[in-house]
């Protein structure tokens, strides 16, 4: 971002669509992870910043409570975010994101294997 502006987490970040470098939808922002300036867990009274966009199971935690083990928490590093507009645009393609593993798994093991799964519907009538 070249110019400074105020980003409201609730208004401009949460529940916004995340697009990858090719403009393909990845997920919606389900939650944000806050970390200290040194990348350590955030501490009360100290400065914090957004460390990562959290997606997936954390949504259920926000809706119903509970906790997700940190190791099982799909995240998109904030370093990969290129632009915050009406959508959040990443600088990496979705294929390089671990957070999108369900899509990749379904693509490689289910949908891509069915005949016609990689057929471009716009290519012909």
């Amino acid at each position: 971002m070249t110019h400074e502006r105020i980003v409201d987490a609730r208004l401009h970040l949460l529940s916004r669509q995340v697009l990858d470098a090719d403009g393909e939808p990845v997920r919606a922002v389900d939650d944000l992870e806050l970390v200290g300036p040194d990348g350590q867990p955030a501490r009360a009274g100290a400065e914090v910043r957004v460390g990562a966009i959290l997606v997936g199971p954390v949504l259920f935690v926000r809706l119903f409570g509970g906790a997700v083990p940190v190791s099982r928490q799909p995240r998109i590093a904030w370093e990969d975010v290129g632009h915050v507009g009406t959508a959040i645009e990443l600088t990496v393609p979705s294929d390089r994101l671990d957070a999108d593993w369900v899509e990749h798994w379904l693509r490689d093991h289910v949908v891509g294997r069915i005949p016609g799964g990689r057929h471009d519907p716009e290519a012909d009538g």
Binding site: E24, L106, V111, G112, R118
Partner: peptide, 21 residues
């Protein structure tokens, strides 16, 4: 659309796998 997945028939099914599933 709620979960922010890629969707639409204009994409190849493999590019919108969760939508087709």
């Amino acid at each position: 659309q709620y979960l922010g997945w890629s969707w639409g028939k204009f994409r190849r099914p493999a590019r919108a796998a969760r939508f087709h599933v």
